[in-house]
Design a protein around this nucleic acid. Structure first.
Length: 832
RNA sequence: GCUCCUGUGGCGGAAUUGGUAUACGCGCGUGCCUUAGAAGCACGUCCCGCAAGGGUUAGAGGUUCGAGUCCUCUCAGGAGCACCA
């Protein structure tokens, strides 16, 4: 074989600095990553959550997920797809506003600085984003459409103002949605949240609760993501039951999922904020005591109210009596703070089959009755020794049984199982108009107002005569005015309320003097629909052109953090459904924005703790790129471990990836040959092509890389060089991972065009097929020998061979062979 | 409390889905090279044993010819939900 070496800078050391910027410039100037709008190719829309451009710069965690999907994007392009892989900035947010307040700089200046930094960091990584489609949620040309969507919500009756008790963060001076309160603390700053009454814009996401659950069937999300969405929406099927109040022409509605226990209902409990209390003040004999209880419960934060160890408290509404619709018996009415205003109807009927009710009744001497007999071996006997004793204790009201069972004390329903009894009781009561089936959700309407400067102004105007009016669409966007002070006010009003000139306007309906809404929108507003704006980021007449939406949507694959799988994912699905309903999105696209959703694991600091400035363990990608190169960083981030798993950073591990890259660079110098291909190496290569092709689709980047390493190791130890054509194939599979190196070696090996626009290689099935296999010989399931033989041998052939072997013969000895298990091409197991 | 996930060398992790446990990388050891160090290269590296051999996937049991993988219990770690009627 004639060997001719392709000398790539033979005496030069691998220098990523030179190589990388050169190719980044070339890709940009040739526009190879631009998604083409009119293309006849099949489209592929890959989306990664756009980051909040913080002043700290890109996190190595960003690099990980962006690189992962960059690999998929590059692979898809090589597979012949028209790929859209865009990037933008979710730039409204408190840190920017806080920085602006502190330094007295306008937030937009800070944002510009940060996004410039982020962009250049991403470009240094060689990410193949289509930068011509960049978006920024704080750009008025963008938030014009965020405001437009709000107006559509309003016009369709899905946005309304309501005085509600909101979660108030005293540090950030901002109202928070329930979703943003974690353990009773502000999600951002960790300050204990207070309650405040405020007039807030609300969005009726609850109208979509059922569809948001049902349509999950259509999409390909990780199962745990679907579970989280379902849990958050919290659907439960039950019944709405009427309890008539004595002496009043009215009833109290109660939602229950356990109507099978209705016959044991002996009292009713209202939430402290239930409207019945105010409405029938004069009927309640001890109204002062009740109102005091109500006031007290307001001061109890949700954390304490939801604390399980807290003692149950309550006050009876003296003078009020309702009738149990099933037994027709009189029931006293109580208030207790463990009953929540916002779930169900804010009222429950109480009985001996609920631990809280049970405790409360025992404490205040309220009569109890049981009507459910626990089945034999019910879970949780309490202190009873056995089933029978437990049943008796339940009957004697010594133990509380919450589970299902067999009904007794329940008139014609005696003897029925709980599950069977429920529909029968509902239909029985419904004939008397006392009950109806009902579905209830934990999901609540979405508080959409924030009292901050750095957000989209809500495009509404209040007129004394006409009420709330939306800004005329031709007047959009309502831009943020320039102010000197961005500080939120202590009164809880938005800083915009202090700018009289801006607030004062005229009513779009009647032209009279009117006032602008001064609240701004929450963070989520801009990220609800951003995936649509990438399709048509410069359109001034529409959110996005219909043709483009039809071509590109839905997103084929969406990846983001696990922390966004409840809120952002739910909100954006909701808004997309809404846009679809009002035909802002063509019907053919369907009402789900994302076909497939995956999540990446966080990158932790060394030692497995969270990376944070205060711990001083933050890794800056720039430093790694400077020291090792972008290709090394890319390979390392993909090689460090399973993509969906949390993983600690280990700078020592980066070195190994740099060695891998240098090894390729050096081997390319002297071990690429033109001539007859080396079959052994070719086999390794094609195995690797298969492994990489398959693993990338499963996000198993770590094993994809390890298979390339195995190939390179074989290449290194082989006596012969690698055929030039095979080398080209290797560069093709390497190029999504280490695009700069692949590009450099591609050119230096006299191959034509750019490596990143080549076809993705196919592996040769026949070549991979092993002609000789290593057959495992087991005796009683233990490995005793390994025989190399040709593939495809039959059991008889193998048996003959094995039983002849001296080693095996000796091991079998005099024992009788009872059974032989044979797995073709794999193993033979002799049972003796 | 409920639901789900995870547990494999000194470390990050592989394992064709029930068929050679520890691939690949880090680290470590020995040697070569070098004035020296670094880098690089070669070999070694789960445990016990000189060896033959035996043991090992958090622990205990089970199913199976065969279990890291399936089932039951226990322990440990993580995530989500949580007076939700």
């Amino acid at each position: 074989m004639t060997i001719c070496y392709y000398k790539v800078n033979y005496f030069m050391k691998y220098n990523p600095k030179k190589i990388e910027s050169k190719w980044q410039d070339k890709w940009a100037s040739k526009g190879v990553f631009k998604a083409k709008n009119g293309s006849k190719k099949k489209k592929y829309y890959l989306l990664v959550e756009f980051p909040y451009p913080s002043g700290d710069g890109l996190h190595v965690g960003h690099c990980r997920s962006f690189t992962a999907f960059d690999i998929i994007a590059r692979k898809r392009r090589m597979q012949g797809y028209n790929v859209l892989y865009p990037m933008g900035w979710d730039a409204f947010g408190l840190p920017t506003e806080n920085y602006a307040i502190k330094k007295g700089v306008h937030p937009s200046v800070v944002t510009k600085k940060n996004t410039d930094n982020f962009r250049s960091q991403m470009q240094n990584l060689g990410l193949s984003f289509d930068w011509s489609r960049e978006i920024d949620t704080t750009n008025p040309k963008y938030y014009k459409w965020t405001q437009w969507i709000f107006i559509q919500l309003f016009k369709n009756g899905l946005a309304y103002k309501s005085k509600i008790s909101i979660n108030w963060c005293p540090k950030d001076k901002i109202g928070l949605a329930n979703e943003e309160v974690i353990d009773g603390k502000c999600e951002r700053c960790g300050t204990k949240v207070e309650k405040r009454e405020k007039d807030q814009w609300m969005i009726k996401i609850t109208n979509y609760a059922e569809r948001l659950i049902k349509d999950l069937e259509e999409v390909n999300y990780l199962e745990k993501i679907k579970t989280q969405q379902r849990d958050w929406i919290g659907q439960s099927h039950g019944a709405l039951v009427k309890f008539f109040v004595e002496g009043v022409e009215e009833h109290l509605d109660v939602f229950t999922t356990r109507i099978d226990t209705i016959f044991s209902g002996t009292f009713l409990i209202l939430a402290p904020g239930h409207s019945f209390i105010d409405k029938y003040k004069n009927k309640i004999e001890n109204i002062e005591e009740v109102l005091k209880y109500k006031e007290d419960s307001k001061n109890v934060s949700d954390v304490d109210r939801t604390n399980q160890d807290k003692e149950i408290t309550g006050v009876q509404l003296k003078g009020i009596v309702v009738r149990n619709p099933a037994t027709n018996e009189e029931m006293p009415v109580w208030v207790a703070d463990f009953v929540l205003e916002h779930y169900g109807t804010g009222a429950v009927f109480a009985d001996a089959h609920d631990k809280r009710d049970f405790k409360m009744a025992k404490k205040y001497g309220i009569p109890l009755r049981t009507s459910i007999k626990p089945p034999a071996s019910a879970e949780g006997f309490g202190e009873a020794k056995d089933d029978e004793e437990f049943v008796q204790k339940v009957k004697r009201l010594e133990e509380c049984y919450e589970g299902e069972g067999t009904l007794y004390n329940s008139q014609q329903f005696d003897g029925l199982k709980s599950a069977d009894a429920r529909p029968q009781i509902i239909s029985w009561l419904s004939t008397k108009w006392l009950a109806q089936p009902k579905v209830s959700y934990k999901l609540r309407d979405w508080v959409f107002s924030r009292q901050h400067y750095w957000g989209e102004p809500i495009p509404m105007i209040f007129c004394k005569k006409c009420g709330w009016q939306p800004v005329k669409e031709k007047d959009l966007p309502i831009t943020l005015p320039n102010v000197k002070k961005y500080k939120p006010t202590d009164t809880g009003e938005s800083p915009l309320s202090l700018i009289e000139k801006w607030v004062k306007t005229s009513c779009p309906e009647c032209g009279q003097d009117a006032k602008r809404e001064t609240d701004t929108m929450p963070n989520w507003a801009g990220s609800n629909w951003y995936y649509l704006r990438y399709l048509d980021n410069k359109n001034n007449k529409k959110l996005a052109d219909e043709k483009l939406v039809r071509y590109w949507m839905p997103v084929d694959w969406y990846n983001g953090g696990m922390e966004h799988t409840t809120l952002h994912l739910l909100y954006s699905r909701f808004i997309f459904k809404f846009l679809w309903d009002i035909k802002a999105v063509p019907a053919s696209v369907g009402s789900e924005p994302y076909k497939k959703r995956t999540s990446h694991g966080m990158v932790l600091g060394e030692g497995g703790i969270k990376m944070s400035k205060s711990k001083g363990n933050v890794i800056n990608p720039d430093t790694i790129i400077k020291q090792y190169g972008a290709d090394t960083l890319r390979i390392y981030e993909m090689f460090m471990g399973p993509f969906e798993q949390m993983i600690p950073w280990d700078t020592k591990g980066v070195v190994g990836c740099r060695r891998f890259i240098e090894k390729i660079y050096n081997l390319a110098n002297y071990k690429v040959a033109s001539g007859k291909p080396n079959i052994e190496l070719k086999k390794y290569l094609h195995k690797s092509i298969r492994k990489v092709s398959e693993d990338v689709e499963l996000l198993k980047f770590n094993t994809a890389i390890s298979s390339m390493m195995e190939f390179v190791n074989a290449w290194q130890t082989s006596a012969e060089g690698l055929d030039k054509k095979d080398f080209a194939d290797f560069l093709r599979i390497l190029s999504p991972f280490a695009p700069h190196l692949a590009e450099e070696l591609w050119t230096e090996t006299d191959l034509k065009d750019l490596c990143c626009i080549q076809k993705w290689p196919k592996y040769d099935e026949k070549l991979i097929e092993e002609k000789n296999i290593l057959l495992i010989v087991q005796i009683n399931g233990k490995v005793r020998d390994k025989i190399e033989m040709k593939a495809g041998a039959t059991q008889k052939e193998v048996e003959k061979l094995v039983l002849k072997s001296e080693k095996i013969k000796a091991l079998i000895g005099d024992s009788e062979v009872k059974k032989i298990v044979f797995v073709p091409n794999k193993l033979i197991n002799i049972v003796i």
